[in-house]
């Protein structure tokens, strides 16, 4: 059995709402995390990301100055000297499929809808640590492989003809977890 030692994790929470930051911090401390940093907008989040090199980011979507999607895009720069592979969990009240896909296309690692639950947050962090996906770089994308299942076993031609199907199953999985 594998256990994740949260005491060794450094986590950055970026959310403009102080109450939500407190809730997330409380849950993370409950999991055992000790190093939890907070930023209240995208700009402060980017600064803390650069200076503190967190292991995992938890990012809200709607924020002043620049939002969570813009923050993710700034981090996911392949030539960046700071870790462009860092796992990013998007925690948001936006649950529409179009938003989930937009977050995915920005390079988000995991998507988590509010209202938050301890179980769902814990599962997302575990996924980030234990089951990281390979990264893909194309002319207009850099981020975790957007195909979540069966990629390693695939032996056919390198065409992404099944992408829509795979995306849909991913969204369904996200929605199932949201309702836990």
């Amino acid at each position: 059995m594998i256990r994740v030692d949260f005491t060794k994790l450094r986590i950055l929470v970026v959310d403009d709402n102080a109450h939500m930051r407190r809730i997330v911090r409380t849950l993370l401390h409950g999991f055992g995390a000790r190093e939890v940093y907070e930023a209240e907008d995208g700009a402060a989040g980017l600064e803390l990301f650069t200076s503190h090199l967190p292991d995992i980011l938890i990012v809200d979507w709607s924020m002043p100055i620049f939002d969570g999607i813009e923050l993710v895009q700034m981090i996911r720069r392949p030539e960046s000297g700071v870790n462009p592979y860092v796992p990013i969990i998007m925690l948001t009240g936006h649950s529409e499929k179009s938003r989930v896909l937009r977050a995915r296309d920005a390079g988000v690692t995991e998507f988590l809808c509010k209202p938050i639950s301890a179980k769902a947050l814990h599962q997302r962090v575990l996924n980030c640590v234990l089951h990281p996906r390979a990264f893909v770089r194309t002319k207009d994308y850099f981020g975790p492989d957007r195909r979540r299942s069966g990629a390693a076993a695939y032996s056919g031609p390198e065409r992404r003809v099944n992408e829509t199907v795979l995306i849909d199953s991913g969204v369904d999985r996200i929605r199932e977890t949201v309702n836990q």
Partner: peptide, 15 residues
Amino acid sequence: IILRPPNRLKARVAQ
């Protein structure tokens, strides 16, 4: 291009 960064995080925090 597929990139496979080493999973140092798992090595450090998974027991």
